[in-house]
Amino acid sequence: MASGADTPRHAHLGDRAFAAGITLLGGAVLLVVGIIVVACARLSAPAFAKLGFFRFLTGSDWNPVEDSFGALPFIYGTLVTSAIAIVVAMPVAIGLALFLTEMSPSRVRRFVSFFVEILAAIPSVVFGLWGLMVLVPILRDVVEPALQHRLGFLPLFQGAPMGIGFLPAGIVLAIMILPTIASVTIEVLRTMPAALREGALALGATRWEAIGAVVLPYARRGIMGAVILGLARALGETMAVTMLIGNQPEIHGSLFAAGYSLPSVIANEFAEASGAVHTGALAGLALVLFGVTLMLSASARLLVRLSARRLVAA
């Protein structure tokens, strides 16, 4: 070889340095999780020390002036809005996924997938703006009065229609998690062998019967995973909810009422938190949020993987 070429020693050094370098960068991903936990835990320590973890979680009073902090109203608001989001988004997202994978020609599929991608790319704050300016007036003037008129006997639909509150927050959340659920469901349905579906069709099943008898049962776990991923996203979604939920740390049974969510109170109060206990309480909420979304995402990913593996095995 001519001069200047790598000597074997160079090559080995290079290989080792490269391997070490990328391993380090891969390990950095693990480090990030560690940093998140440590940073949140350290910030929240003063609050847990003063209030106790359990009392903090179950307390329903939130009063920064008296250093009294309870997470319950926020947990409640987060759960209610996320539940609305799942109830609204799940059937739509699964229907959309089924239509795209089972019922439509590939041209339609590409066209719609493109728009679903755009939907996923729209920033949360823009949805919040849209919700405030468009959705809230419609709910206040049309939908909520109608619901109250028809279903006012249910506690869910009582109280003055204000437009702002759990309902608009939940609906906008539904729009925002729809692409997540739909795209993961599509991913899962795609891994299903065509032979299974064709087997059902060949037996004389209609397309819908094939879906009910073969497609859904086989994709069940994966779809479950998709919904949980959507749920995790809904729990942590901040801006749109902050702009729509009303920001009152109260627990109401009616969907028309104003409430508060975990991310929203952090967003609103963190920058101006008064003292280490207040900051700590907010960081404690972040830690709770982190723990819950982490567990949900992990179980969702496992479900999606198990589903894919089972399909491959079949």
Binding site: V29, V32, V33, I35, I36, A39, C40, R42, L43, L229, A232, R233, L235, G236, E237, T238, P263, I266, A267, F270, L282, A283, A286, L289, F290, T293, L294, L296, S297, A298, A300, R301
Partner: peptide
Amino acid sequence: EVLAGVPSIVVGVVAYG
């Protein structure tokens, strides 16, 4: 994969700390 699902507000708290 799991980190991708962490709420962005939590990451804000981390950067603050």
